[in-house]
Amino acid sequence: MQEPPVYAWSNRWFRWSVSSLFILAIATLLVGFLWLPSVQSDFTAKGLWDSICRAAGVPSEWSAPKDWPRASARTTNVVLTSAMARAGPGDRIGRGATIAIQQCSMCHGAQGMSEGTSPNLAGQYPEVVIKQLQDYKRGDRSSAIMQTLARKLSDRDIVDIASYYDSLPRARATPVRVDEPGAPALVRVGDPLRNIVPCVACHGGIDHKLGAPWLEGMPKAYLLSELKDFASGVRRNDSYGQMRNMVRTLTAQELDDVAEFYARREPAAGSR
């Protein structure tokens, strides 16, 4: 007997395999999109079609809109891009220097090195300066002085100031080494059980993440006050709450240790 060709209904392999796969797929779809959602109240809240859409993963309002006030989830209006991290050309630096010496040097030092408790800006990554100035300008980070000053700056001014500070030498040129003596465990390895990532994973040492500032040699008082503000939620312009989440569970002693460590100016004893 001649066997029928493969693609013919009379071929039993074709008939059986295609029909069983079809039935299996349809049955599974019915169970997954009709039966299972039908026993979940949040799936069935708005009728059959919505429950199918929800099972398919179509985003929508699945339950009746509640009228509780929605807190604004937005903590900053700045979207970081890699272009911000590139230093500007020489004329930008010059223009930035003119603005910075007039408006910033009183607190941040003539060479971007603070003599008091305001942060050093010398050698700060440009995208950090841009983001913080924009946040001050739009009210996402608060400071009576900085907000007033930033409000008058144009976007161009901000980029130029960032380019200028990027061009100045840093207080401490090298990042933490992970085997550096005296470095607190939180800085080197974090605390896995508290879900705390080591500082060096973002602030340099292991890796540097876009938007994370250069911390080495910053005044201790500044570091500590910012850490405390993140921990209490007073400061909330970290885009994903990454700093608030890291420091929320730290003790006062731990905050102090970390700030003390990053404020060191000279290379730690015993290192190269």
């Binding site: 299996l24 599974t28 779809l29 169970v31 997954g32 999109f33 299972l36 959602p37 199918i52 929800r54 099972a55 398919a56 993963g57 179509v58």
Partner: peptide
């Protein structure tokens, strides 16, 4: 979160196959 529960079920069944 980006995939619907219905498709997750579908894939679970075919994995079993």
């Amino acid at each position: 979160p980006q995939v619907g529960a219905g498709f997750k079920f579908l894939h679970a069944v075919f994995t079993a196959m």
